[in-house]
Design a protein around this nucleic acid. Structure first.
Length: 723
RNA sequence: GGGUGGUUAGCUCAGCUGGUAGAGCGCUUUCUUGACGUGAAAGAGGUUUCACAGGUUCGAUCCCUGUACCACCCACCA
């Protein structure tokens, strides 16, 4: 069978296109945009097969269906993938420079996109290609700017300090997903700090003695039995001789070390937060190259790892080292170069999320979550939503649309920590994607420089339900298809993406973004691990497709589509399932051969007899009855998005009830049964079409039928179905 | 540390509102019948059974409580 022939036929017939001017009721399905970072994997194939089945089902039910396709630029993941490729050529961002690197990025994007797009089509996806969209398209850019500007005007935007993970070797900040954790055997130094004007000492356990110079305080858990009398007193920093406050904080783990922590606000998040609450200064003992700053004259210029050993020796000489223990713990390292990352504090953009979260909580019930409990999980998370750090140290994506006046504000400072930017904020700053044409209000010059950082990818993909329909403009499409009827996703990104879409959509449009939110499970390897390039455990959907046919692969994937349930697979188990459904395709072909090619010549059919209604034969009546039950059951299953049950029902009916039992029985009374055979099989094909689009079209066309394609025929209902 | 899901036949998984356990693959036997051997028929296989222990119920794989193990997500790891 030539699958692509049928695909071309459908596309040429315009069946995939939505029609906003149509009087039919709309049904919108929004494809979660795959990342343009390479070929689609098995999970995508499943997700897209689910979308397509529902789209085809709704189309047959007479809806004006919009299945909208698109791809995501996926900042972090994209850069990670591209940089690994460049590394093989001995290149990196530093060597190429921003401009050249971006050229390579676009080339890589085009290449990835080609592969994605080709896979969509061979999988049979009935998407409206005329509306295909990419997250960096002008349409989306417009929406992103509107989003940023609105937050700015509403005073929800601010710049604040944040810990970034800095890789000293690659000279770049890295994202959490770019970090790996390594179990490392380290030394835990127990350092004695002398109390000022006293003979007492306070002992603190640390793995990082080289940062002592950046410690403005020592914190103990409240009511520490040995140290509580020291709270409020001052300790002496053994390296800098500076005074160190002794404070209490409930975030200190009483069971670790001595129950006392040296606070390094410049190099650790917990310490940073403790420091913020106690108004401690942020000092940096290590610079961006990973070397000790001049804060510590003895260690200055040394690499942090060497300084650590040296610091231990110095402490020992000073008699300030109580003991050293071994400690095995996991340390974050850079995924690419395996260097230990250095946490540094930096200025980042944030969006205050509390108002958005509060609103979302009042309306989240309007979304029908499948499975149901995901609604509660999301609501729980939204209740505790923290501010969203939206700036990223990347090159691929939307650059922050903030321009600073180089003359008036060379340091790019815009307000203090957590102080809103906004209309009342600094005048030497402009929100725009393009270079501003107007002059700075203060210095009257046009010397604008854009912020170096980029927006978090989710800042744009969070708008996906809206931006894809032309929002913020009130387009015809937006009015008709928003909110979407159906959205699907892996549970994995429920916070990053789904929660954000709900919050943003309610904030900006006062509407939920989708009525049905379907969480499919993830297909993992046999050990339950995610498929990943580094583990090389992936299964190529294209390979399966070539071997077993698209319809069979789709069917195999539906067996894994139970809501919220993960599945395990390897090439072998996928082959087993696909083979089974390949055999099912063969079965269908042979049923058609029996019914159509071996059609008896002496058939006398009346319309009533064809419907099986008037047949006096018990077998005919039975199979019609079973067919009607199947129609009801399959319709119900799809309505509840239980595709694995719908396909199972159809498989059993067609193979066992129809082929094994009924057809065998008709062999003795073939001519009489022919109308019923034709009727039952044709309806079966129609029920199966959303799942196995190609084979059903091929065989349906061979059957007596009305209409151009099975794709646009009416979905069967129990009882009467027009011939 | 917080959260979520899972534990059912050798393997991968289903199991609707609680009522005597299902599929595919694999395995055994039979069938060269005129749709199909990528098939058909029959069968073995779940230790008095659905991880374990309690509870609710006339009755629990399903509901409740707890335990164990596995996996994942979030946070953290001085």
């Amino acid at each position: 069978m030539d699958e692509q022939k049928w695909y071309q036929f459908w596309e040429d017939s315009g069946f995939f296109k939505a029609d906003p001017s149509s009087s039919k009721k709309p049904y919108g399905l929004l494809m979660p945009p795959p990342n343009v970072t390479g070929a689609l994997h098995l999970g995508h194939a499943m997700e897209h097969s689910i979308l397509d089945a529902i789209a085809r089902f709704k189309r047959m039910q007479g809806f004006d269906v919009l299945l909208l396709p698109g791809v995501d630029h996926a900042g972090i993941q994209f850069e990670g993938t591209l940089n690994k490729l460049l590394e093989k050529e001995g290149l990196n961002k530093g060597k190429l420079g921003r401009e050249e690197w971006l050229k390579r990025a676009w080339a890589f994007k085009d290449e990835s996109y080609k592969s994605v797009s080709a896979t969509w089509r061979v999988m049979g996806l009935s998407a409206d290609w005329s509306r295909e969209i990419f997250t960096l398209d002008p349409k989306v850019q417009k929406a992103v700017l509107h989003e940023f500007k609105t937050f700015f005007e509403e005073g929800l935007l601010y710049k604040g300090a944040y810990i970034v993970q800095w890789c000293p070797k690659d000279q770049t900040a890295i994202e959490a997903v770019e970090m790996e954790y390594e179990e490392k055997k380290e030394k835990l130094y127990f350092v004695k700090f002398k109390i000022q004007d006293s003979d007492e000492f306070i002992t603190v356990a640390t793995t990082r003695p080289e940062t002592i110079s950046a410690d403005p305080a020592i914190a103990i858990f409240p009511g520490h039995p040995k140290f509580k009398h020291l709270v409020g007193k001052t300790a002496i920093n053994p390296f800098t001789k500076a005074e160190m406050q002794i404070i209490e904080d409930k975030r200190i783990d009483k069971n670790f070390g001595t129950g006392a922590l040296k606070v390094t606000p410049g190099h650790a998040l917990l310490d940073y937060e403790i420091g913020k609450d106690h108004n401690l200064p942020i000092l940096h003992a290590v610079d961006k190259t990973g070397r000790i700053t001049d804060l510590d004259p003895n260690l200055k210029g040394m690499k942090a790892s060497e300084a650590r050993i040296k610091a231990g020796e110095i402490l020992e000489e000073m008699g300030a080292l109580e003991k050293v223990e071994d400690l095995t713990h996991s340390v974050p390292v850079c995924e690419r170069c395996k260097t230990m990352v250095e946490p540094l504090v930096s200025e980042e953009f944030f969006v205050k999320m509390k108002p958005l979260g509060d609103k979302a909580l009042t309306r989240i019930d309007e979304v029908n979550f499948i499975p149901k409990n995901y609604g509660k999980i999301l609501a729980d998370w939204i209740k505790e939503v923290h501010d969203w750090c939206i700036s990223r140290p990347l090159w691929w994506g939307y650059r922050i649309p903030v321009w600073y006046c180089q003359k008036c504000n060379p340091g790019h400072e815009v307000g203090k920590d957590k102080q809103s930017l906004g209309p009342d904020g600094p005048k030497d700053m402009i929100i725009a994607f393009d270079h501003p044409t107007q002059n700075c209000q203060t210095c009257k010059l046009n010397e604008w420089v854009q912020d170096e950082k980029l927006l978090d990818t989710w800042f744009s993909s969070g708008l996906w339900p809206m931006a894809t329909l032309g929002w913020p403009d009130q387009t015809e499409e937006f009015k008709k298809y928003f909110p979407w009827d159906f959205e699907t996703s892996a549970g994995e990104i429920k916070y990053l993406w789904i929660a954000r879409m709900i919050m943003l959509s309610l904030h900006f449009t006062d509407q939920i973004p989708f009525k049905n939110m379907f969480f499919h499970g993830m297909i993992r390897d046999l050990q339950g691990r995610k498929f990943s390039k580094s583990l090389n455990n992936g299964i190529d959907p294209n390979e399966l497709r070539k071997q077993w046919g698209t319809d069979a692969v789709r069917m195999a994937l539906y067996t894994y589509s139970a809501p919220g349930r993960d599945g395990r697979a390897n090439k072998q188990t996928m082959d087993e399932r696909a083979k089974n459904f390949r055999n099912f395709s063969t079965k269908l072909t042979n049923i058609a051969r029996f019914i159509v090619d071996l059609k008896p010549t002496d058939v006398i059919a009346t319309p009533d007899l064809i419907r099986g209604k008037q047949s006096q034969n018990k077998d005919d009546q039975d199979i019609i009855e079973k067919l009607n039950q199947t129609i009801s059951k399959v319709t119900k299953n799809i309505d509840k998005f239980e595709l694995h049950l719908a396909t199972e029902t159809l498989y059993n009916f067609i193979w066992h009830d129809l082929a094994d039992v009924y057809i065998e029985k008709t062999k003795t009374r073939r001519a009489e049964a022919q109308p019923t055979l034709e009727y039952v099989f044709k309806i079966s094909l129609e029920l199966l079409h959303p799942f196995m689009p190609f084979i059903t079209e091929e065989l349906w066309q061979k059957m007596p039928h009305e209409g151009k394609s099975i794709m646009v025929t009416a979905w069967p209902v129990p009882g009467l179905n027009a011939e």
